[in-house]
């Protein structure tokens, strides 16, 4: 067992966990943040994507010890109260989800993508950058549309701040 200290969605969190615990299990089982999903458990599907120190990673393939001391953002940490994050709003407006299982991971990857590319995103880049996230419902078309829409909204939001 180790004492793990994290900042999760802006709040300091301490938890005791076995050293073999994966970050996704700490988030879901001990912290109750079940928005982060386990899809494949083999680092392929991306449903477990969260941000560690600002970078999108697959939390099913990170030991809690590796994350110790880091800032974690999960899907629960994106909205401001009832106000959806622009990426979440764009997914809703563009019908970017069907069953919704992959959606938290898609959104966490997409937010990181927009941050890394600034406003310069085109369809080909979005499709390439979403390689680490698998969706079995939508055929990706509306997901790509949502990300492109959100990239514009986030640019506007950043400019307003």
């Amino acid at each position: 067992m180790s004492a793990i200290k994290l900042t999760v969605n802006g709040k300091s969190v301490s938890a005791d966990a076995e050293d073999r615990t994966l970050l996704v299990h700490l988030l879901r089982d001990q912290l109750g943040l079940t928005g982060t999903h386990v899809g494949c458990d083999t680092s392929q599907c991306g449903a477990c994507t969260v941000h560690i120190d600002g970078r999108a990673v697959k939390s099913c393939t990170v030991l809690v010890g590796q994350a110790n001391g880091s800032k974690i953002t999960t899907i629960e940490g994106l909205s401001r109260g009832d106000e959806l994050h622009p990426m979440q709003a764009a997914f809703r407006d563009n019908h970017g989800l069907q069953c919704g299982y992959c959606t938290p991971g898609m959104i966490m990857s997409a937010v990181d993508m927009v941050h890394r590319h600034g406003g310069k995103l085109d369809e080909a880049t979005v499709r390439q950058e979403l390689e680490g996230n698998i969706c079995r419902c939508t055929g990706y078309h509306n997901i790509v549309k949502s990300v492109l829409d959100a990239a514009g909204r986030m640019k506007v939001a950043n400019a307003a701040e």
Binding site: T49, A56, M113
Partner: peptide, 8 residues
Amino acid sequence: GDPQVRAR
């Protein structure tokens, strides 16, 4: 890999 894998 993919972006998340490349991050780690």
